[in-house]
């Protein structure tokens, strides 16, 4: 560059350097809020491998870590377990629409059992008030606020259907959500990247995203926790109904079923011919939602009369 005078060159270079420094400084200022960010994860947790690659010992260690975390952040003792599916067991759920009264106690029980965010009153169950004579959800209303049951209405609670051909698990780019051997579709809250593709894919509005850090007062936290189920979730990840696997895998019933005052809910082992749910499937008028989509839910609805 023969024509440029050295002096002009230097002045320009100095100006450019000043501009670059200013830009870098402004950039640092712009990302400064990130310093307040506490993902509440140790380095070990951050570098952890996928759930399915963990040895039982590593899994236990991780559960202890979650417990220690609860102690640190909430000052309470919780018990975090990672119960595994029992070979040969396949869970299913059936709901009797003839007797459900729409009291939403199941949704409320879910809210407490699963340590949902209190402010948003989150729950995995949405109860729709439906017009008698139609199954079309377009005429349903989940925001009703009046004494139930109302005349001319029936009620349809909807939660995760634990589909056998689940669209949500297919679309996940990182296998953060999958179907376990006993049929339960789970999310690993520490693997999910929060892309919400699964939420778009689910045809039953069964998934919930943590748009903020869920907050539960320490005194209200349910200390009986499962690693893949109701432990307090981090911000920015997906969650969903887990058939209360921390209960059901240990022989207890889901919280929503226990809370139901009418006995509309039937939970059990689809693989066991003697189970109540098998009796319902064999003897009642049973249907599944959006059968045409081929999702093959393991959550069934039925009518008595």
């Amino acid at each position: 560059m023969t024509e440029e005078q050295p002096a002009g060159m230097t002045r320009r270079t100095v100006l450019k350097a000043a501009g670059a420094t200013l830009g870098a400084g402004a950039f640092a200022a712009a990302i400064a809020p990130l310093t307040q960010w506490k993902p509440a994860e140790s380095v070990d947790e951050f570098l952890r491998r996928h759930y399915k690659e963990l040895t039982p010992a590593e899994l236990t260690e991780i559960c202890r870590r979650v417990e220690a975390d609860a102690k640190k952040t909430h000052g309470i003792d919780v018990h975090v377990a990672a119960p595994q599916p029992t070979p040969g067991v396949k869970f299913g759920y059936a709901l009797n629409l003839s007797i459900c009264v729409g009291c939403r106690r199941c949704a409320e029980a879910c809210h407490r059992e699963n340590n949902h965010d209190r402010a948003t009153h989150n729950s995995y169950i949405r109860v729709f008030e439906m017009d008698n004579g139609t199954l079309d959800l377009a005429h349903g209303d989940a925001t009703y606020d009046h004494p139930v049951p109302a005349k001319g209405k029936y009620y349809m609670p909807v939660q995760c259907h634990h589909c056998d051909n689940a669209p949500c698990t297919k679309v996940c780019p990182v296998e953060a959500t999958w179907k376990e051997q006993d049929g339960i579709v789970v999310v690993d809250y520490n693997w999910c990247i929060g892309c919400r593709y699964c939420e778009a894919a689910c045809p039953y509005h069964a998934r919930r995203f943590n748009w903020k850090k869920p907050e539960v007062p320490a005194s209200e936290i349910n200390p009986d926790q499962g690693y893949l189920s109701n432990r307090v979730r981090p911000q920015g990840v997906m969650e969903k109904c887990t058939f209360c696997l921390h209960r059901t895998r240990e022989g207890r019933l889901p919280a929503c079923l226990e809370a139901c005052p009418t006995g509309a809910r039937v939970f059990g082992d689809l693989a066991d011919p003697q189970s109540e749910i098998r009796w319902v499937l064999a003897n009642k008028r049973v249907f599944i939602l959006k059968e045409d989509l081929g999702t093959r839910p393991t959550f069934f609805y039925f009518f008595d009369k």
Binding site: P39, F46, H50, P173, V174, A176, W191, C192, I193, G194, C195, R196, F209, N210, P234, Q235, G236, V237, M238
Partner: peptide, 12 residues
């Protein structure tokens, strides 16, 4: 910017 957990980008 749409990711809830950009810190876990490497999971992909």
């Amino acid at each position: 910017v749409d990711l809830g957990r950009p810190d876990r980008f490497w999971h992909m």
